[in-house]
Simulated assay, not measured.
Amino acid sequence: MNDPSPRRYDLDWIRIGAFFLLILYHVGMFYVPWDWHVKSPHPIAWLEPVMLATNPWRLSLLFLVSGAATRFMADKLAPSILAGQRTARLLPPLVFGMLIVVPPQSYYEIVEQLGFDQGYLAFYGRYLTASGNWCDADGCLITPTWNHLWFVAYLLVYTLVLAGLIAWGRPALIRLEQALARLPAWTLLLAPIVFLGLARAVLLPRFGVTHALVDDGYNHVLSFSMFLFGYLTAKSEAVRTRLIALRWPALALAVCAYLAFSLYAWTWRDAATDPAASLVLAMRFVYAVDQWGAIIAILGFGARHLNRSHPALSYLTLAVFPYYIVHQTVIVVAGHHLAQAGLPQALEAALLISLTVAACGATYEVVRRVPLLRPLFGLKPEAPAVTTAERVLPIRNG
């Protein structure tokens, strides 16, 4: 039986699931034949369509759920307090991550790709002072960098922008929220697909995806629109009801679009010529169908089946952010060294996943017990032991 309370446990579960999918995705990036920080010497071509199963929607879903969490906070706080609290929660992990957590990723990247052999201390001094001059035919490595922590930087900026909108444009936000709540179910499904397809067709060729904040126009339109949608619909029972009703049609659309886009991507992955412009344009919209259909399906099934608490939720809700902060560095370092051990690839992959989960878990268990470390990993500066106040943090509490 679903929990009848207004707590959105379903969004907590979805957030946790999306972050753990991200960990598996980055393990896959070590093996798939796409560019990444470090690579297996034995790439696995068939992983490409597997990776594409979550590529269109995974991060968009995280921004949407983050917007919903922000809504429950914003309704209890003045905009200035909201901005201050989120800055205090997100900025320390971002700075700490750029200075301590992320540098090993860049180090092993230049070791593998540029043959750097002067050791980590020599690297780190150049990393901090942006004086490495680590370049190849594709460009130069700019440091310090945030790598996978770009999500934290963008989330912080979007929260500050939203706080400004709440302070100076609350009536407009209310009208927009009311308009979304009145949308018929099929409009809720189809209109965002048109928007996402147009954004991908017009903005992606111009901007690409850089994760560099200042020149990432397509990604901002995509990610901030998802963040704002989550904020505006988090408390709408009408939208929640329509999401549940749409879950099966949305899933069918997402599966069909995924199959079509995967076939397209596989067919043209090694082609000597580019596909026709009309085909590329069509695939922009097919990608959008996959993207929004999957998000609607996940939200709908989640609202229908996951809106309930569980003893594991109290642990996972707190653990997921520290896991996210450290996971990619563990994958890069462990992947680089495991690749040199000559193990069977299946065993190597199993060890890489196991080491990543174990290292993330150990990090969280240490961090949550050390008050000075908690803010650096996105945890509130509370007592080191888990207290009653930490037991369950539903999505409405941010």
Score class of each variant (00 low, 15 high):
residue 3 D to S: 08
residue 17 G to R: 13
residue 19 F to L: 15
residue 24 L to S: 06
residue 28 G to Y: 01
residue 48 E to N: 13
residue 50 V to W: 06
residue 50 V to T: 14
residue 64 L to E: 15
residue 65 V to F: 12
residue 68 A to D: 07
residue 81 I to G: 01
residue 97 G to E: 01
residue 97 G to H: 01
residue 99 L to I: 09
residue 100 I to S: 04
residue 108 Y to R: 02
residue 130 A to K: 11
residue 131 S to E: 03
residue 144 P to Y: 10
residue 153 A to V: 07
residue 153 A to T: 04
residue 156 L to V: 09
residue 159 T to N: 13
residue 160 L to K: 05
residue 162 L to F: 05
residue 162 L to W: 04
residue 163 A to P: 08
residue 171 P to D: 13
residue 179 A to W: 15
residue 180 L to H: 09
residue 181 A to R: 10
residue 189 L to S: 11
residue 190 L to Y: 03
residue 191 A to I: 01
residue 191 A to K: 03
residue 192 P to V: 06
residue 204 L to V: 05
residue 208 G to P: 03
residue 208 G to S: 07
residue 209 V to T: 00
residue 210 T to R: 08
residue 216 D to E: 00
residue 226 M to Y: 14
residue 234 A to M: 00
residue 239 V to R: 14
residue 243 L to W: 10
residue 244 I to F: 00
residue 249 P to S: 08
residue 250 A to T: 14
residue 263 L to E: 05
residue 265 A to G: 01
residue 278 S to L: 11
residue 289 V to R: 00
residue 292 W to G: 11
residue 308 R to L: 14
residue 308 R to C: 07
residue 309 S to G: 14
residue 311 P to E: 10
residue 312 A to R: 01
residue 316 L to F: 15
residue 322 P to C: 03
residue 323 Y to E: 00
residue 335 G to H: 10
residue 347 L to S: 04
residue 354 S to E: 01
residue 354 S to D: 10
residue 357 V to F: 15
residue 362 A to T: 14
residue 364 Y to R: 09
residue 365 E to C: 15
residue 367 V to M: 06
residue 371 P to I: 10
residue 376 L to Y: 06
residue 385 A to S: 04
residue 385 A to D: 13
residue 385 A to P: 00
